[in-house]
């Protein structure tokens, strides 16, 4: 004789769970799927299907303004993710490798501040701040955008690195020191290799976040400094062409690729420790 034990609680058996889940996924992905499909539209309209073609990709790729904006976006994202990752790594070392000290919570909050302050506020603040520097120095290059992006990318780079380091046994560094490794050798041979997946994940996330930023870029950029997202915004103001769909799809593909790598890296994060 078998007795049926009461089934454990599962949110999946709540009434309507499946329906709500499906609705949410449709709402999330239907617009994206539409954009992807219409990026392959042969016609000029964004709403009328005229057959399959990759012509808008060719058009976008051949557009010199798009080329320049793409290059600019990549340059900014590379610099910003690089700078913010280095800073975030140092911040993570400072907040996890030292004995608990007073004010650590405050420091966490300060590091993560860009996540909490409304982006528009940061944007306006940077606009005013940078314009006075511009007037004082006369410099109006990409440096402002790179600095601005580095600043708001720091928490995105910091969080995965910190998560990685918090899972690391502090005794590992003691063990290295015990085995005659100087502090620099300990960092080089033990700490850095172990935090590397976290650093890589942080850099990816910072890169993606920088790549698709609109608000701060729009406020800080000088004339002729359009990035890919601000160029697209400008295009939409005039006329919507399938070219924008094609660019969006390309950007989407890149982002998905980078985020996949990010998740693989942070997955290793937990598996290792």
């Amino acid at each position: 004789m078998t007795r049926t034990s009461p089934r454990p609680f599962s949110v999946r058996r709540l009434p309507g769970f499946t329906a709500i889940a499906i609705t949410c996924f449709v709402l999330l992905y239907a617009p994206i799927v539409t954009i992807v499909i219409y990026s392959f539209n042969a016609g000029d309209s964004v709403a009328l299907w005229r057959g399959f073609s990759t012509k808008w990709y060719t058009v976008a790729a051949g557009n010199q303004i798009v080329q320049e904006a793409t290059l600019r976006s990549l340059v900014i994202a590379l610099w910003a993710s690089g700078i913010s990752t280095v800073l975030a790594t140092m911040a993570a070392l400072g907040t996890t490798r030292a004995r608990n000290y007073r004010g650590r919570t405050l420091i966490y909050m300060l590091i993560n501040q860009p996540l909490m302050v409304p982006e528009i506020v940061t944007a306006v603040a940077l606009l005013i701040f940078f314009s006075s520097i511009k007037i004082a120095t006369g410099y109006s290059g990409l440096g402002y955008l790179i600095l601005a992006h580095s600043a708001f990318c720091i928490p995105f780079a910091y969080l995965p690195i910190r998560a990685r380091m918090e899972g690391m046994d502090l005794a590992l560094e003691s063990a290295a020191a015990d085995l005659y490794a100087t502090p620099w050798q300990t960092f080089r041979r033990i700490t850095l290799p172990l935090m590397a997946p976290g650093i890589a994940a942080g850099a990816m996330l910072a890169f993606v976040v920088s790549l698709d930023d609109v608000i701060i870029t729009e406020f800080v950029k000088s004339a002729g400094q359009d990035t890919l997202p601000t160029y697209m915004l400008g295009q939409l103001r005039r006329a919507v062409t399938p070219e924008v769909n094609a660019i969006s799809t390309a950007l989407l593909a890149l982002t998905v690729l980078l985020l996949t790598v990010f998740f693989i890296l942070s997955g290793r994060n937990t598996a290792r420790s």
Binding site: D169, A171, L172, S174, A175, A176, D178, L179, I190, P193, L194, R272, S273
Partner: peptide, 12 residues
């Protein structure tokens, strides 16, 4: 040299 309670073997 020390044998640690948690062993502290280098995982990588």
């Amino acid at each position: 040299n020390t044998v640690f309670q948690s062993y502290a073997l280098f995982p990588h």
